[in-house]
Design a protein around this nucleic acid. Structure first.
Lengths: 154, 154
DNA sequence: TTGAAATGGTACTATTTCAGTCCTATTATA
DNA sequence: TATAATAGGACTGAAATAGTACCATTTCAA
């Protein structure tokens, strides 16, 4: 089991690839470059289009273009667009369903929500720009590694 | 999709419940209290037994007892015991297979591994004791939230 | 000492969910 | 009109989860 689904993984690849191609490129091109199933990739790019990350253009010289700045796209944003909102456990997402029968006396509820927040904060803070260039000055990733080495966030 | 599998979730419940019961309790008791399928739970408890977290005792007054200190059980430990080692993406675990064809020119490899490390460090640092009592003085969770509020780990 | 009850342990099957694939329609260009 | 691209929806398969049934072991009381 991986934390990120293939969808999420490929979405990041697509966004990264398009960032380096101002003229855009087609799903066919990307699928062959990274050896990804083309229909599967097309589905993902379609979703990214609907959520305003890409613009699409049909026809012979069609394709997709990145229309948002990498600094403004967080990992959490992408996950949410792919219908993969982050939840630590099943019971942490039953806001309307209230399915968890142990909700009132669950011994780990409070503690888990703290962990939830810490991971969620990472996903909200790290942007596509950080992924593309981890060593740039303002990258929160570098910050994180600093803290790690001093044992606080390790 | 949840970050933790049901297995992981139930394992944490079991360990937490047993921590409050020095005399131990049976799988039937726990499964009915939390409305969990007994055989499914039994499998998890067996695994926890084999990895030295619990001791089991058959018979009329049998059951399971927690035999390790909560401070010495990290989330990463539990995940590993359940055969659910953390990986951010599929390609981040292909150490021997080397399946990823884009490995050499992957635009997100470096950036992703930083995120991987940050999340993994949280899982290694948070222990069962932190989950049980998030506000105790030495809890790394509190540490994390402190950092969050100052923008470094947010 | 023996049998019933309580417990952990195992094997098999059913269900459900979701990632992944495939097929067809639509659109734009030449 | 042919071709190359996106768009949309239907289908499939595998893995996670849950359920059913049964077996093995231990205790305790008659």
């Amino acid at each position: 089991m991986s934390f990120f689904s293939r969808k999420m993984d490929y979405a990041l690849l697509v966004l990264s690839h398009l960032h380096g191609n101002a003229d855009g490129s087609s799903a066919r091109e990307i699928s062959s470059k990274f050896s990804i199933s083309r229909p599967f990739l097309a589905n993902i790019m379609k979703t990214l289009c609907h959520h305003g990350y890409l613009s699409s253009h049909r026809g012979v010289h069609g394709g997709y273009v990145l229309i948002r700045k990498p600094e403004e796209i967080s990992l959490a944003d992408i996950m949410q667009s792919l219908d993969e909102t982050f939840h630590l456990t099943d019971c942490s997402k039953d806001t309307e369903k209230q399915t968890c029968s142990a909700r009132t006396f669950c011994p780990i509820r409070t503690g888990m929500s703290s962990v939830h927040d810490r991971i969620r904060n990472i996903l909200s803070d790290v942007t596509l720009a950080d992924i593309l260039d981890p060593v740039r000055p303002n990258s929160t990733i570098q910050f994180g590694l600093e803290l790690v080495s001093h044992g606080s966030d390790k």
